[in-house]
Design a protein around this nucleic acid. Sequence first.
DNA 1: CATCCATATAGCAAGTTACCTATATTGCCT
DNA 2: AGGCAATATAGGTAACTTGCTATATGGATG
Lengths: 107, 107
Amino acid sequence: MDDQTVSTQSVLRALANEKRMQMLEWLLDPTAHFPAQRDGDLVDDGVCVGAITDKIGLSQPTVTNHLRTLADAKLVTSRQIKNWVFYKADRTAVLDALTNLRSRFET
Amino acid sequence: MDDQTVSTQSVLRALANEKRMQMLEWLLDPTAHFPAQRDGDLVDDGVCVGAITDKIGLSQPTVTNHLRTLADAKLVTSRQIKNWVFYKADRTAVLDALTNLRSRFET
DNA sequence: CATCCATATAGCAAGTTACCTATATTGCCT
DNA sequence: AGGCAATATAGGTAACTTGCTATATGGATG
């Protein structure tokens, strides 16, 4: 329950930034937002950092940092393939977090 | 829609702080968390700043500031009676904001 | 009208966040 | 092995957040 509190806060902090919100929305529907990748399937593996960096217009380290924040909140997962790291949204985790949040506010 | 974006962010920023989350939860069920007030009904009028200040253990100006953040996000409303200001949670606004947020993440 | 009480505003300090550039790390390829 | 490519880490700066104390404001009351 205290653990719950911490995690809800980390989710809220992760979402309370437009750039991260944008990235998460893109990652939830990667084929709509990113070109196909040579190594790694957009849907199965996720989107590589470079593609996100190109699209969002921030430096690569800043993007890596935002992705870490999303990962800390368990909203995205990452996997390494060769020397790429692919980030993938966890839709279930996102929706569960919101359900959880909502339950705090219902009577 | 851009307006929507801004407002979603203000809601998320408002909730992404434990003290404000706490206050909002209290304000959603005031009778469970605050003693009856002489001037102003807890449910109908809301909770006065002083009562919130006593309970949360922050200075009065800090509490006023947090309440403003919640009010900017439209999660609470305020009304003045005599020289008290009563803050009241807007449950509908809270739930609508979450519904709205969720709709961004559904397929 | 003087004062008191409740809240708001001003202004400041400390901590955190968001961004950058430079560099390290790691894996691949010739 | 050497170099290239992709990402992570380090380190620095500016802006924002969170808290405080001191003070202003404005209604109520003796």
